[in-house]
Structures are given as C-alpha cells and as structure tokens.
Design a protein around this nucleic acid. Structure first.
Lengths: 233, 233
DNA sequence: AACATTTGTTATGTAGTACATAACTACTTT
DNA sequence: AAAGTAGTTATGTACTACATAACAAATGTT
C-alpha cells in the first residue's frame, strides 16, 4: 500500500499538545456553562482529574485563558471574569517589529478605512463641546516643533474617535497608531494633505457629512496616493 | 505611622505572578533581539536559569506566547516564528456570548464604520472580474429562502472586502460578522434598506465613489437608525 | 455577648524530579 | 557511500512538595 495515502489518512491527528486540547476544552466548557462574571469554576485538580491530564497541563491552559482575561484566579477561589479584554490580546501581538510587511500594509489600509468611515458616526454623536475641544487642538497644528506636531496629530485624530463615544473603537485606533506611523516613516518623507485639521473642524461645525468625507479624503490623500503605488509582494 | 501611607508606597509591587512577569520579559527579549522567523531561541532550562525561576513558570509563559503564534516549538529546537497571527488571539475571545453588551454595541458600530469607509479602497482596487462576481451574487438576493438570504448577504459583503485584496481586513470582517448578526437578531425584527445589493453593484460599475458611499449609507440605514436610538447603559 | 486574635484549612503559585517522545547526530555495517 | 542503528538532546507530560494568600472556625479578651 502507498504510504502517501496512509499519511493523508492518518497523519495530522494531532500535532497539538495536551495544553492546546485542554485550552479548547476549557473554552468550550466556559461557553457551554455560560458562567457569569464572578462565578467560581472547579479547582485545578478537579479539572485535571476530569480531563485525565496532569495539573501542569491544566495550568498551562488556564494560564492562557488568564492572559486573555477570560478568567481571573484568586488564591482560594478560581473565578470566571467574562469581561475578557478583547483588545488586550490583540495589543500584545501588535508590534511593528514583529509583523510582516504585508500585514503592516494591511493594517495601514485598515486605519484609512476607519478614518474614512468615521463621518456618519461623528455627525450622529458630536456635541458642541466636542467641536470646541477639536478646534482647540486644531489651532495648534502649525507649531513647527516636530515632536509636538506628532503629538498634536495624534491628539486630533484621537479626539475624532473620542467623539464617537465608542471606547473599543478608540482603543483600537490607539493600538493601530504606532503601525500607521511606522509604515509612514518607513516608506516616505512626510507629506501633508491639502486639507488641514482646522478645515476639517470648520466642516464638522457647519458642513454636512458628505463634505466632511470628501475633506477627510483630501486630508489623507498623500496616504492614499502611496497606497496606489504599493505593489504587494 | 499611618498604614494607609505605607500601603500606598509599598502595596502594588506585584499582584502579578511570576508567569506574568516572565511573559513580559520574554516578549521584550524577543523584541530586543529582533529574531527572524525560524531563529532558534534558548532552551527552556536556560531561560529558567537565566530568569531565576522554575521551568514550570517559563513553560506557562511560553505556552501563552505559543498560543499567540509568536513562537513555535519543535521537539528538539525552540523556534521563533515572528509571524504571529495577529487576529488569531482576537478570534479566541470574540464570542457574542462572553462579551458584554456595551462592547457588542461598540463592535457593531465598528463594522458600520468599516463598511462606510470601504468605498475609497474599492474604487482603487476593483477589477472588472470583481464587479462580475459581485453582480452574480447580487442577482440572487431576492430568493426568499431565509438561510440562503443570510448566506447571500454574507457572500456579498464578504466579496466587497475581498475586492480590497486586504486579507487582514477580510478576516477581520469575517470575525466581526457573527457579532453583527447577534446584535441584529437580539434587538430588532429584520429590516431592509432602500438600496439593494444590485443597486450597489450598478453604482460600483458606473458611478463614482461618493455615489457609492451615499448608497451604502442608505443600504445600512436601518442599522444607523437603530444606532441613534441606542442609549448606552 | 461582641469583638479581636489565633489557628486551621484549602486552592493556587512555584520548585524540582522523573521519564516519554520526537528529532537530530554520529556511528556502524554491508 | 548508502542504509540502518544507537546515542543525544529538548520538549511534553506527570507527579510530589511546599509556600502563600484567603477564608473559616475556634479561641481568647473585654
């Protein structure tokens, strides 16, 4: 008989370690039992016994879930904290230095998409105070000091996400920022769009959302231009 | 002396476990040494000795990094695989059942933002074949069978992300989809925007991107309407 | 009796040992 | 020299032991 057939049938039954399997089992267990935050779950030794593995293996799996924020453990009672920080895990991996070039480019585009899609939310949620805050930030955009300009840039776009009142969105943007910066400094000399922050604020104040979007595109145009010339590997 | 002062000065030195500390140390180590994918890193016992902790602790930390895809280990050589699946970690936590209501709402909005921000990328990247594919999908949107309609809906919007050629974006959208669905089924009876998929394709074919955006907003209008009436807790 | 202190118990955190297994190396055999 | 074999090494898993924090019960003090 042909070994190639055999290997196709039999091989990949498990390159996974016990810890991997247990991790999945525990995740499913948590889901199935639909624990509420604060509910205590079985102790390590019970889990180990139930799963037929050593406490070590269970601990490795628990350690992973703990890192994801799915569970929290106190010295005397294992608790479930169903408030996993969904972006926390993301954050740990999101470093320009360890991400491949193509994914970096993808994230760069992702942020452009977010920025362009923000208009509708902004026009739904904005308040007079938001506009005032934004204006205050925008006014300082012409200060020449480089490190200040970067901070100001971040503050402005950060404030935009702030206005949405969407904490997840805001944190997401903050996480994406370093990558955005990295790609820019990696590839090209700094360029500036024709539309300034102050222009954007003006439109947000008295224009409609379609105007805002067109303006935002102009503001980001240097980045979109770079996008067109990018040739994927 | 006042204990309150004492506790302020001394207390929070570490609620963290050794595994937590080692995890951070290792992550920094990997970053600092700027390993390339495939480079082999010190063995567990060496790491344990260097860090002054037991092999168990090191293994828990390594187990976490392994889960994030930052490292891969083979039986005889520990390897670094600097191709961490940045969305992989995300995926594990992203389950409608374990995410709190507010974050669900946030993610719902996030997807709307993405959808609205897609236009520019689409008009940069679209090809005739893409349009044809999209048209084929859109043509079937009037079939009444409910499960088919859902599949078709997913196919259409999925294809849109496909056109961007951005794998990260596409996977991200796929991950967000269940949450999107969940929020919809959770809150309201199904509604349909005034603009159909076929209308969108038509515009993508012969209209400009601003037309497309306006149409997309109309298409998503029921969702935006729900957004306005949503009152955060 | 009410409160504070001590002691005990329990579950997690950490250390250390032991052995199985896979993968690589080097040696031997023909 | 090619093939097979034995040895070496690092990870994977199991088990034991003890430290520590958290809680509970019991004891002592006023």
């Amino acid at each position: 008989m042909m070994t190639s057939d055999l290997s196709k049938d039999l091989e990949r039954i498990s390159t996974k370690t016990m810890a991997d399997v247990v991790e999945v089992s525990l995740r499913e267990y948590l889901k199935k039992k639909s624990f509420k935050p604060g509910d205590s779950l079985p102790k390590e030794l019970e889990l180990a016994a139930a799963l037929g593995v050593s406490r070590n293996v269970v601990r490795e799996a628990l350690s992973r879930l703990r890192m994801l924020g799915m569970i929290e453990t106190r010295k005397k009672r294992g608790m479930v904290l169903a408030r996993p920080d969904i972006l926390g895990a993301f954050e740990k991996v999101l470093d320009p230095l360890i991400i491949d070039r193509e994914t970096l480019q993808n994230i760069f585009e992702l942020r452009l998409v977010l920025e362009m899609g923000l208009a509708d939310l902004l026009y739904i949620k904005k308040t007079d105070k938001d506009i005032a805050d934004l204006e205050a930030i925008a006014k300082k955009e012409n200060i020449e000091d480089k490190s200040f300009r970067i901070k100001n840039e971040i503050a402005f776009h950060g404030k935009l996400y702030d206005i949405t009142g969407n904490e997840t969105l805001k944190r997401f943007q903050i996480m994406l920022m370093p990558i955005f910066d990295y790609v820019i400094t990696l590839e090209e000399k700094p360029t500036r769009g024709k539309v300034s922050h102050q222009d954007l604020v003006q439109i947000l104040k008295s224009g409609n959302k379609d105007d805002f979007r067109i303006a935002m595109f102009e503001h980001l145009k240097p980045h979109f231009d770079r996008l067109v010339q990018y040739i994927p590997a």
